[in-house]
Design a protein around this nucleic acid. Structure first.
Lengths: 463, 463
DNA sequence: ATGTCGGCGCCCCGCCGACAA
DNA sequence: TTGTCGGCGGGGCGCCGACAT
């Protein structure tokens, strides 16, 4: 019974080449690796792209690079495509997005942008564990947290002594890893033994890195990794100076902006401290409906140790551009904040408006007690972003207003032929934002009626 | 005697952290890894930079990238600095160069460029071996070629049975590797045993990769690696699209060209099929003194399997730009050639003028039998590049001539105060090219007299 | 519930000469 | 001269429960 090595598990545990090299990444696994806060905008929607933020992600200093005066701080773009990737060496996940500078006159795209406000990332059963020294040493296997094993792994046959099974798990590149899953020890516990050390050495995992198992819709087991935050590996190696990379990002954006031509950006959710591609509707909503003031309370979502989420509360302590000269009117991270639970530099001291959720004083709402009577001001209050700065030619800080799309036009566009592609309930979901805000405005148009009809009525009234 | 494992070699063989992380790369080792043909121009010299070639190295296709009409095909630049690097992950060697667009009026720099025509890379005792399956398997050690061991390693004490010693070898990052060097077997041979497999796995070497040992001037052993040509790992991963990288290279060059500001380029000698930074004197000499014609015979240097050099002979079969439209007048690889020993696609079918050595018909020389009598035409023949296209504003193909530097001025500049920093013999070496050519022109100014004096005499005569 | 450790069996790493190319 | 192999000895990989937290 002590014959430890006499396991009948196949010796062929380990990586298998698995044919298709360029197969597409499993989105559920990609999102799981990217973390709970990541939510890519859908293809076909409008987004706000911050080229200078993207450039800054590479390298903070502003050395000998041109400043591209004709490149605006933000560009409104149509998101043509999103491709999910994983670095074959490191398994680092990243997304490739094709953007094209666009007019907000693209009605369908604007609706899609609104639609993206609902969470459209796949929600999958998963668990994530940070590897301990024991997990990564060559001395033993992987200790599976009890809840995790019961939730994700196929149930063991407890009539066996000890209960054990072989798990086949695919990684981001569709390589199959084989592990022996056994329930043993005193007290009893779930362990991955045979095959585990090959995985650790193959992926070059060290204590502090995380491993993550999910069960997809077909009950297949998948696994991904998240490396601990190491020192940011010097990007500028062997090919291109980081200066040239910054210039490349800025020049590519400037060229695309001037020609309305498509271009490509890369987004690495775990390496980038912040996003530089934001759904247009999310941006507009935040900019125009959050009444900002010093001392205002807000909540903001953060990722927890084990890939969960939790909200922290904070207070706005300052409003102003990060750098008054170079970042004038960028509106990116222009809020200075303090946190209720402050373990000093743990959380960022600057955030962007669209990252926070304002905390409403529960007793009163400015909108509720507003005595406006004419429809137009009601609209302005309900969808205030429609009036200002919806187009992108504001690189110098002046708002330019909507080009070629009046307020009634925009509303009519929502009921035009394009919208007919959506079912009424789809529209209802996509316009969820407006619906909530309209209802907040105390406009009694029919309670729970589909919003499409509401909008049609509004359209008529506003003529 | 069969006690194989009872070796007294320390078990601590392997990598040592070795403190200083950012210590500078050993130039001898760097050049050895770079290959026998690589010869970086010296700091302070003038070079010709081909921005579009540098961009093309990344990616061949010309997708959505702007064409930068104001960016010339070649830029004459002052080489401010050269830093040698090695990728910490792969040990791939590369160089970082700071360039600044310059006038050829910089006399000192022009001289330095001439000086660079002599081989200034360190010549070091070394050997290079391509690893066999046995060398990289876990079954055994490394079989050292006899000549190599005798030339590079410290001599063994052959009174021992068997003769053996411990070798301490530093890699590019100054990590120390310890190997047991033993002379044994029947027939006798040199082997590296203990410590070798740690090196192979640590560097992730596979059969086909090469390892390279050198003994530097202080009798220290150093080692480097050259990986076999694998498929070019997709550059555009996780940070930047290859489009943006191309744009970055072009825009950085264009910006620097417009502002005469310094910029940075990276040169990877083993990944780049060709150089895009050429000493100005080498370029000019090739362009203006090689009388090109169809059918002309030439020789060209190639790297051999084991890091040696050999010349192949070929014939010019065509003269013309690579792409008549996009690459008009680029002069880069504008020669179509055939090779005497042709194993089909083994050698490139297109080369640049400065890569080849024309084969002179030994019986006659156009210069020798020329009957020109006036000095000016003699100069034109001796240093023909002085008259034409020495400055860089020829992006559209027209030559622009020297700006602000007449022929006598240029010659006088060679004897001006700046030159006083060099000793007479230094100058003699640096002007080696001109010396040879002047002598070819049959100008009898004093035979072996230092060239500085020759030039002064010329300067007087030309007034 | 789970991280670390001592115990220990056996796999395979790695050193050896034989042999052939 | 040097690439590959069979032989084989022992170090360490890796499976086990004990024990602590």
């Amino acid at each position: 019974m002590k014959a430890a090595g006499s396991t009948s598990a196949p010796a062929a545990a380990g990586m298998s080449p698995s044919g298709g090299d360029r197969r597409s990444i499993n989105p559920e696994l990609w999102y799981a690796c990217a973390g709970p806060l990541v939510n890519l905008p859908p293809v076909g929607s409008l987004v706000v792209y911050f080229p200078r933020v993207a450039a800054t992600m590479l390298k903070d200093a502003d050395a000998q690079i041109p400043n591209y005066p004709n490149l605006p701080w933000k560009m409104i773009c149509l998101l043509h495509s999103v491709t999910l990737h994983a670095d074959p060496e490191t398994d680092e996940v990243y997304a490739q997005m094709t953007l094209q500078p666009a007019n907000t006159g693209d009605k369908e795209a604007f609706l899609a942008s609104d639609a993206s406000l609902k969470l459209n990332r796949p929600q999958t059963e998963f668990f994530c564990k940070t590897l301990t020294a024991s997990d990564t040493s060559t001395h033993g296997g992987f200790s599976v947290p009890r809840r995790a094993a019961e939730k994700i792994f196929p149930p063991l046959d407890f009539s066996m002594q000890p209960p054990a099974q072989e798990l086949q798990v695919r990684d981001l590149h569709d390589n199959v890893w084989t592990f022996r899953h056994i329930y043993r020890g005193q007290p009893k516990r779930h362990l991955l033994t045979t095959g585990w050390s090959l995985f650790v050495s193959g992926k070059r995992l060290v204590a502090g890195d995380s491993v993550l198992f999910i069960r997809d819709e077909k009950q297949q087991l998948l696994l991904g990794i998240r490396r601990a935050n190491r020192q940011p590996t010097n990007i500028s190696s062997s090919v291109l100076s980081s200066d040239s990379m910054q210039i490349g990002i800025l020049a590519a954006a400037a060229h695309a902006y001037a020609n309305h031509s498509p271009f490509t950006v890369f987004y690495n959710p775990r390496a980038s401290p912040s996003e530089f591609v934001i759904p247009l509707a999310k941006y507009n909503k935040a900019i125009y409906s959050n009444q900002l003031s010093l001392g205002m309370r807000f909540r903001m979502m953060f990722e927890t140790e084990e890939s969960g989420t939790r909200r922290y509360m904070g207070t706005i302590t300052g409003i102003g551009d990060l750098d008054p000269v170079r970042w004038k009117n960028s509106k990116w991270r222009n809020l200075q904040v303090g946190w209720d639970e402050s373990t000093a530099g743990e959380r960022r001291s600057r955030v962007s408006v669209w990252e926070i959720e304002p905390v409403q004083a529960p007793s009163s709402s400015a909108l509720l007690h507003d005595d406006s009577s004419d429809m137009e001001s009601l609209f302005k209050k309900a969808m205030p972003w429609l009036g200002d700065e919806i187009y992108l030619k504001d690189s110098q800080g002046q708002n330019a207003g909507i080009h070629g799309l009046s307020l009634p036009d925009y509303l009519r566009s929502m009921t035009g032929p394009v919208v007919q592609n959506y079912s009424a309930s789809d529209i209802s979901k996509q316009l969820n934002l407006q619906a909530q805000m309209l209802q907040q405005s105390n406009m009694q148009f029919g309670g729970s009626k589909p919003l499409l009809q509401q909008t049609q009525q509004i359209d008529h009234l506003s003529k």
